[in-house]
Nucleic acid binder design. Structure first.
Length: 471
RNA sequence: GCCCCCGUCGUCUAGCCUGGCCUAGGACGCCGGCCUUUCACGCCGGAAACGCGGGUUCAAAUCCCGCCGGGGGUGCCA
């Protein structure tokens, strides 16, 4: 059975790149009817924070992911100890008493000579007696993995194809720190092996780690899983997507009024393409059905906010059921402190005006005239209203609305047209002042919608205030 | 420096494995038009790419080599 995992470290918000990795791992597992594990990689106790872990989980859930198993590495230290001991016993690892200062010197020396740095292996050959003596003296030590000489580790990456890396590129590496905590390359193997992960799907920045991990798998007698390394997500300048590029956390997009379904869908389009050409809008269920690692592109993708915005708009106006869209919209309208935020009313407005915005924060702006009681009109716009014809049109409209409030946009257009004809005006001569009177803007959603949807008394109040000031 | 990965329109991508169907297809964005009470939405149309140089071949985006460019790694971070 297929089993994948997503293993974030709780050191910050859920990054878009990690979110995509999580999504691909999730889709792959679900596609194969397998299971998906969430593992918190908090072995670095300095940087790991409980709050981050909570936000990570919340964001993952918000995106629509669910998992079958959950655990923290910080709860499994005894297990790692056990395996470290085993490596020590079998000679695959050894204690290293080199101090950070000594290692730093080695590193600088290597750099000065222009050669690749790798640990010298100085502690490799300490006799058991020496080790005992140093330990008794209380000298702190790390545990290093003994990398076999001259080996070339190969693996067949499911996305990149065959990869071969010589162990000459790295020296014996630390698997247990001097404070007794295990390091990433070690625990990742123990956990993946013990929990039966069949496919390790992660970012391509982990490719250099893979041979180290394969050596540990072998030393411990574990079965080596399949690996799939996803190309990274880039910013506009083609460097790895980071804070410098603006909003890069799932949280930020959530707060900006993006829908989880759209973000999920968009992230999938970054690097993966559907087998059937020409379609880009997919539900999670469809993605589970269609997703395959063989359709993942092996070159990095630039994150394009414009396209995400467009796709979000597609979800807003076409995909989400009206009921659902209303639910999502309400918190945003409430947060804006609008007065006319009543669910059934909001639903009715969205029914007609959902094609006017791409994101929910954009909605808050664009649909403002529907939800506030009164609108402000800038001085410069008054000049358009201080016009004989405009005044005539507005007062005629006001009189009509008094006893004939239109219930649909069609009725509204009919009513305005009658007034326009009667006063012998051109359409814009009545629509434009009416728009300004009702919204304080020169552009925006259809005025017919406002006439049909806005409560009668709100409509009349706005017109009355304008007319009072004009006459 | 060394190691690894990558290189099709501005961007996401299809095509590459299994050369000819590619006059290189789709999408976002951009430009123009239509619709229209405005802005959008929608519809129609357009500009826009095989990094460079060598091979192999009747034929190369597709296969091979070199170069250039970009990215990542090089920790007692993950």
């Amino acid at each position: 059975m297929v089993k994948t995992r997503f293993a974030p470290s709780p050191t910050g918000y859920l990054h878009l790149g990690n979110a995509r990795t999580a999504i691909f791992s999730y889709l792959f597992a679900r596609h194969h009817g397998g299971s998906f594990v969430l593992r918190i990689e908090d072995t670095d106790r300095e940087r790991s924070k409980k709050e981050y872990e909570e936000m990570l989980i919340e964001d993952l859930r918000w995106l629509g992911l669910d998992w079958d198993e959950f655990y923290r590495q910080s709860e499994r230290f005894e297990i790692y100890d056990q395996y470290a001991k085993k490596l020590l016993e079998t000679g695959h690892a050894y204690p290293c008493f080199c101090t950070p200062e000594e290692l730093e010197r080695e590193r600088q020396e290597a750099q000065r000579r222009g050669v690749a740095y790798r640990y010298s292996g100085r502690c490799r050959h300490l006799s058991p007696e020496e080790v005992e003596r140093l330990k008794r003296e209380g000298k702190p030590y790390t545990i290093r993995f003994r990398v076999p000489d001259g080996r070339v580790v190969t693996f067949n990456d499911l996305i990149k194809g065959p990869i071969a890396i010589s162990v000459d590129d790295f020296g014996d590496f630390v698997i247990v720190r001097s404070d007794g905590t295990p390091t990433y390359n070690f625990v990742v193997v123990v956990d993946d092996a013990l929990t039966g992960i069949t496919h390790v799907i992660r970012g391509e920045d982990h490719i250099p780690n893979t041979p180290k991990q394969i050596l540990i798998y072998e030393a411990l007698g574990f079965k080596v899983p399949e690996f799939a390394h996803l190309p990274v997500i880039l910013g506009e300048d083609r460097s790895k997507l980071s804070k410098r590029h603006g909003a890069v956390s799932v949280r930020a997009y959530r707060e900006e009024g993006y829908l989880p379904e759209a973000l999920f869908n968009y992230l999938c389009l970054l690097g993966w393409s559907p087998p059937e050409e020409g379609r880009e809008v997919f539900s999670k269920e469809e993605l589970i059905k269609l997703f395959d690692l063989k359709d993942v592109n092996d070159s990095p993708a630039v994150f394009n906010k414009e396209k995400l915005k467009w796709l979000n708009g597609v979800y807003v106006r076409e995909v989400l059921p009206l009921e659902e869209l209303t639910e999502r919209a309400l918190p945003f309208l409430k947060r804006a402190n609008y007065e006319l935020v009543e669910p059934s009313y909001v639903k009715r407005v969205l029914e007609y005006a959902r094609d006017a915005f791409d994101t929910l924060t954009e909605m808050v702006e664009r649909l403002r005239p529907f939800f506030v009681r009164e609108v402000e009109i800038d001085d410069e716009l008054w000049s358009f209203l201080e016009d004989e014809k405009a005044i005539a049109a507005l007062s005629a409209l006001y009189d009509e609305l008094l006893n004939r409030k239109p219930e649909t946009p069609e009725e509204a257009r009919k009513l305005v047209k009658e007034v326009q004809k009667k006063l012998k005006l051109k359409p814009p001569q009545v629509w434009k002042p009416l728009r300004i009177a009702l919204t304080g803007e020169t552009e925006g959603v259809g005025v017919d919608l406002l006439l049909a949807l806005l409560p009668k008394e709100v409509l009349l109040t706005r017109l009355r205030r304008v007319l009072e000031r004009l006459t």
